[in-house]
């Protein structure tokens, strides 16, 4: 596939960001809120793409890293009165440190062991909030990005402000991630994923590379968590096990090896509940159907994707092109 140069990519990201701002001005409040959710989800999915699609490790508990990031950000705001941008930095650092420790302990794990361990983490971590009173229990912590600056005018709503922040941060993070994945690190991870024995014979330090990938992925997830905390709340209920599953699903749906796919995955995840609402309405609005239909659709899509296009649409297209070229 033809890759854009860094400069061109920067211009593309910038133009896309500008487009988002213009669009955000023209749509209603709900759409702006959904836009913010899409931005946050995109970043969370990107952390999985880095981890699973590139370094070949699977994490079923990415929600736990989101929680760590969100709590770190909220705590630093509550107890140190840190400015908002600094809380985001704290979220990245703490979450990455947490990921590093875990990766160090779990460094020798692969496949199902890592999957199960991260799953246990996602189940267990949110319960800690009830154990320590400074974590705020079920109600959680207060975390906000402050009001939008006054010069934007009266009509500038809070959600639009959230969207601006989320979109801005996510675009920067995605741009940096893109460069990272195109760099030596990205190539090393791909080599690892394809064949770790061959990679180690070529001089790649397998354990170290895997730990690096896990750490960076945790940091990215932590940033996504802080943004999620800003848009919704910082409480155990915001980081259930289903959040981790949702993130994985988004990554697989859009093709786990393409960073840009993460945006597609996030859009699908936000659109599905809307579609499910319409279908549930057709089926007579029973409460059982309405609450369970979104999860059902997402899970069915997940299975179908794994069965028929496991590497995502992007990879399938590339394969077809290669076959085409051979003839």
């Amino acid at each position: 596939m033809h890759k854009l140069s860094t400069k061109k990519a920067f211009i593309a990201y910038f133009a896309f960001g500008w487009l988002l701002l213009i669009v955000a001005d023209r749509v209603d409040e709900l759409r702006v809120y959904q836009g913010a959710t899409i931005a946050v989800t995109t970043l969370a999915i990107a952390s999985i793409i880095l981890l699973t699609g590139y370094s070949g490790q699977v994490s079923l508990g990415q929600g736990a890293f989101l929680a760590v990031g969100a709590y770190a950000a909220a705590l630093s705001q509550t107890y140190w009165q840190s400015p908002f941008w600094f809380t985001l930095l704290i979220a990245i650092l703490v979450s990455a440190a947490f990921g590093f420790i875990l990766a160090f302990a779990a460094g020798r794990m692969s496949g199902p062991y890592l999957a199960g361990t991260t799953l246990a983490l996602a189940v267990g971590l949110p319960t800690l909030a009830n154990q320590f009173s400074f974590l705020g229990g079920e109600t959680g912590l207060v975390y906000d990005a402050g009001l939008p600056p006054e010069r934007f005018g009266e009509e500038f709503t809070l959600y639009k402000w959230f969207f601006w922040i989320a979109a801005f941060v996510v675009l920067i993070a995605m741009f940096l991630l893109r460069n990272l994945l195109n760099s030596r690190f990205g190539r090393t991870w791909k080599a690892l994923r394809a064949n770790s024995t061959a990679a180690s014979l070529c001089g790649v330090n397998v354990a170290q590379s895997k730990i690096t990938a896990f750490t960076i992925s945790a940091g990215v997830a932590g940033l996504a968590g802080a943004l999620l905390g800003m848009v919704s709340i910082v409480a155990p209920s915001a980081f259930p096990l289903s959040l981790s599953f949702t993130i994985i699903t988004g990554a697989i749906l859009a093709g786990v090896t393409s960073l840009l796919g993460s945006m597609l995955g996030a859009v699908i995840l936000v659109v599905i509940p809307e579609i499910a609402d319409v279908i549930a309405h057709q089926l007579g609005d029973s409460e059982k159907i309405t609450t369970n239909l979104p999860g059902f659709i997402v899970s069915v899509l997940l299975i179908l994707t794994v069965l028929f296009s496991p590497n995502g649409p992007a990879e399938a297209m590339r394969k077809r092109k290669e076959q085409h070229a051979k003839h």
Binding site: L60, G111, F245, I252, V256, N292, F296, S299, I303, P310
Partner: peptide, 24 residues
Amino acid sequence: PVAALAPVIATLGLLGVIKSLVGM
């Protein structure tokens, strides 16, 4: 790249399908 992870993800998807069906 997903071949090794596919079974894990498929069973996870199945868990989701079953739970939502049971809920329905």
